[in-house]
Simulated scan of single mutants.
Amino acid sequence: MTIAPKLLKMAQLMKRPFFASTVLRHRVAATVEHLEAISFCAPATLIDVGANKGQFSTAVRGLLPEAVIHAFEPLPVAADRFASVFRGDPLVHLHRFAIGAENGTSTFFVADREDSSSLLKPGKGQQDAYGVSAKEQIKVEVRPLGSVIDLTALPSPVLLKIDVQGTELDVLKGIESLDPFDFIYVELSFVVLYEGQCLFEEVRAHLAGRGFSLRGVFNQSVTSAFGPTQADCLFVRDDDR
């Protein structure tokens, strides 16, 4: 992010007391670039898979003070920061493990840019596009989403947000039914950045087969190495339950 966008983002953060307080007290900046998508979905429940320090959950909380939030973050340092941001908020539930297709323990690659950490090893594409590489490895617990919370008991509408750096299909395949979700908002890549990762078209096809259509694309990242590289994609359930 260049200086001008950084200044614009800081100005947006300072306009809202909750966002400003979170920056000043916890050094966690709400992802204001997602506010349009969040406002469109207006979720009563957020499932934040790949919550990191709480940037997206903070954006949701700033717009929707009564939303229930279930957040999943396996990286201990990031999860600790998330916990400090939302300490005392009874509607926020932090789960300190990764979400995948099956129960187990897996290697987690901690990147030199923390929010690029993943269950997959950063590849040459990630280095070429963003200058990011793995700095260490840790072991983390992995669970399917439906084994952790009762998805049928969540206040609707429900927004499933996924930001897991290449293992999006594993997250989705670990959910027996997508019926509880009204919206799925997921960061997807158009080129390979991590070893063995899935790409945009694979996830789009998977979701189409399970009753979700692509509604919009936000925050496209264009790099000198690849051109269009990543984007945040909003999928909406096809029916009108």
Results as ranks from 00 to 15, higher is better:
residue 214 L to I: 08
residue 194 Y to D: 02
residue 183 F to S: 09
residue 208 A to H: 10
residue 49 V to D: 00
residue 116 S to G: 07
residue 105 T to P: 04
residue 179 D to P: 09
residue 76 P to S: 10
residue 23 V to I: 14
residue 79 A to L: 07
residue 152 T to L: 14
residue 144 P to Y: 01
residue 66 E to M: 10
residue 215 R to Q: 11
residue 19 F to R: 10
residue 145 L to V: 03
residue 124 K to Y: 02
residue 148 V to R: 03
residue 8 L to C: 09
residue 49 V to E: 04
residue 57 S to D: 08
residue 111 A to C: 13
residue 15 K to T: 11
residue 122 P to A: 04
residue 198 C to K: 03
residue 123 G to S: 03
residue 170 D to G: 08
residue 37 A to C: 13
residue 26 H to F: 15
residue 215 R to S: 11
residue 14 M to R: 13
residue 208 A to M: 09
residue 209 G to K: 06
residue 239 D to N: 12
residue 21 S to K: 15
residue 36 E to M: 11
residue 95 H to D: 03
residue 36 E to W: 13
residue 39 S to N: 12
residue 200 F to G: 04
residue 93 H to P: 02
residue 33 E to M: 08
residue 171 V to F: 00
residue 81 R to C: 13
residue 26 H to A: 08
residue 10 M to G: 15
residue 79 A to D: 06
residue 150 D to E: 13
residue 22 T to K: 11
residue 238 D to H: 08
residue 48 D to Y: 04
residue 191 V to R: 03
residue 178 L to F: 13
residue 81 R to N: 12
residue 152 T to F: 11
residue 240 D to T: 14
residue 99 I to R: 03
residue 65 P to A: 14
residue 131 G to D: 00
residue 67 A to T: 14
residue 75 L to E: 14
residue 88 G to A: 06
residue 131 G to F: 00
residue 141 E to Y: 03
